[in-house]
Amino acid sequence: MTSRALVPFGLLFPALLVMVLSGVIPAAFVAFYSVHDTFSGNSFVWVGAEWYVSVLSSREFWWAFARSLGFSALVLAVEVPLGIYIALRLPPAGPLAAIYIVLLAIPLLAPAIVVGYLWKVLSTPGIGLLSGLAGIFGLSYDMNNPVVVWATLLLMDAWHWTSLVVLLCYAGLRAIPDAYYQAARIDGASPWAVFRHIQLPKLRLVLLIAILLRLMDSFMIYAEAYVVTRGGPGVSTTFLSHELIQTATIQFDLGEGGAMAIIYLGIVLAVSWTFFTLIVPRRRGLA
């Protein structure tokens, strides 16, 4: 190996060191927990795939999994079209654009606990804005109704995160050269044709990034939802992360929690890989 070949490794070393400390080692611990049983947290006995069998045959796990998947699907169905629409309607430049961007970004920087707290208060009967509004229309805002609770969580997530989709799409739109629009004008293309044949294909990459980030983050939503609903009514909003935290740190069942975490890691790997392969050939084609 020549010294030139070693240069990138010197440059990568600090980042890899930090990632080993904060990512690889904890992940290895999780993998270790998942195949051991523990008595007092410091003596471990090899149990093989037992925890995996118990997790995969648990109804609670599959229901929590289904709820998380359903929540993510709804989040994407609402936030992606809305985000694209708002990004298309934002002014391309000027002071108004700057004000919009600042205001759009505010929810993104709201701490999880603040978001949860805010929406809990908004939906509290008697003092909240949402329950008050429902009252005006003669409806009762019943937080014991799973449909109402899901709608509240969805509204909360859309409030918190749609701006990320907007900002990414807005950045993607600004990168489209004016010549494309001029050509479209000459051809007399309708706004829909411009969107379908110029803007949407150019947004493909940023959209894939936005979808991947929103999918992964909503799939493991924790604090925000927990503050609003405590997982209820019943278990109707107990998502995968609640199940995982409940098992690993509250029941202190490291083995079962570990197996759950590794299964989740497998899901992340599969989904990320799918997106990666969707993104890559496109770049190859352009290069």
Partner: peptide, 10 residues
């Protein structure tokens, strides 16, 4: 893409 919940216990 990993959630903090996964790495919390370790």
């Amino acid at each position: 893409m990993l959630a903090p919940a996964i790495l919390l216990a370790p």
